[in-house]
Design a protein around this nucleic acid. Structure first.
Length: 202
DNA sequence: ACTTCCTGCTCTGATCTAAT
DNA sequence: ATTAGATCAGAGCAGGAAGT
């Protein structure tokens, strides 16, 4: 009778380099797989070769799948954090400010309720962007815009639409909306600068 | 006729986002 | 971390309307 452990030791020694591979190393660290290898060395039948092959394929798939999931979770959390910081920086909110002059309900009050979206859109629709402009010069600046520019500013800042969405709504190209949007902002900015200089002289 | 303003278009590069 | 696709924004040009 042959000494199996001596044969296995010989096999492991002969294939020392391949066994340094971390995946093969972890594969053989599982007792069932090592047992399968022992049996194969003792009796190298097609059936055992196939069995070991399948076992390794399954093991390798699990390794890759786990690694993929791990990377996805890792990078997703990084991206989520990036987006969160970016949004927090862009949209600084005063949570306890009333949503409108007619109500004492604050953004914070309705934030967690399921009715929030409907309630907010109803409030948004109940007045135009002029009602939102509390700064006199900003209001006057807005009034300098053409009808088309006002419409774009209103859709962008009151209803939160992107340039593409506005373009689709107004049946124009995204670039045309972008340009009108930029011109409107420039006009308001110029108006405000002139107004602030005027105020300094008073 | 000329000028100014507004608007639209294409092209192109920059930036952002989502997927791997 | 990398990459492909989506989105944004600026430059340059052209046409129409209104005022001088």
């Amino acid at each position: 009778m042959r000494n199996l452990s001596t044969d296995l030791t010989g096999y492991l020694k002969a294939n020392e380099d391949q066994l340094k591979n971390s995946i093969i190393h972890s594969f053989l660290a599982i007792p069932e797989n090592m047992e399968l290898l022992k049996q194969l060395i003792e009796d190298p039948t097609d059936h055992l070769i196939h069995q070991l092959d399948e076992s390794f394929k399954e093991f390798y798939f699990r390794i890759r799948f786990t690694s993929y999931l791990s990377k996805t979770i890792h990078f997703h959390s990084i991206n989520f954090d990036k987006r969160h910081r970016q949004n927090a920086d862009r949209f600084r909110l005063i949570l306890d400010k009333p949503l409108s002059s007619e109500t004492e309900t604050s953004f914070l009050d309705v934030l967690a309720t399921t009715e929030f979206k409907n309630e907010l859109s109803e409030i948004e629709m109940s007045f135009g962007i002029e009602d939102q402009l509390t700064n006199y010069w900003l209001y006057e600046g807005y009034r300098q815009l053409t009808e088309n520019q006002r419409q774009i500013i209103s859709l962008a800042y009151l209803h939160g639409l992107t340039d593409s969405e506005i373009a689709h709504k107004l049946n124009r190209s995204q670039q045309a909306v972008s340009k009108s949007h930029a011109r409107a902002l420039k006009k308001m900015r110029d108006f405000l600068e002139t107004a602030s200089k005027r105020e300094e002289h008073i």
